[in-house]
């Protein structure tokens, strides 16, 4: 059963990362609200940290660096989510909507 040995292989984790990244890009394109796009951007960041953790586990000489980088990505993602939600609340106060098709004042 080679299937049960997948967790010891680097390509498995790379495929998981690629899958998360593709889901993120798909969601960014297909979503029409700011919150949906925020959720998709979280997937893109998660894909990046999955790849860092995979290379850290299998290839890196010093296995601390990848963990610390992933920790920093998590902090950045948390800050980004907080800022994005507060921007959403500010936009909602002015426009009474968060659908991207209604937020086109700069388009002229």
């Amino acid at each position: 059963m080679q299937l049960l040995n997948l967790y010891n292989c680097l390509p498995t984790y790379l495929v998981i990362g690629a899958l998360l990244f593709a889901f993120g890009v798909y969601g960014m394109v297909v979503r029409r609200t700011v919150i949906g796009m925020l959720i998709s951007s979280e997937f893109i960041l998660a894909a990046a940290s999955t790849n860092f953790m995979a290379f850290n586990r299998f290839l890196a000489p010093d296995p601390v660096v990848g963990q610390i980088f992933t920790l920093f990505i998590m902090a950045i993602a948390a800050a980004e989510a907080a800022i994005a939600v507060s921007i959403m609340i500010a936009v909602y106060r002015n426009y009474k909507t968060i659908e991207t098709e209604d937020l086109v004042d700069l388009q002229g």
């Binding site: 919150i35 949906g36 959403m88 909507t97 968060i98 098709e101």
Partner: peptide
Amino acid sequence: ILIAFGIMMATPEEQQTTGM
């Protein structure tokens, strides 16, 4: 939880779908 709060605070009831 933060995003859930964002949905609750910044979206009116009839608009909580994804705008398909």
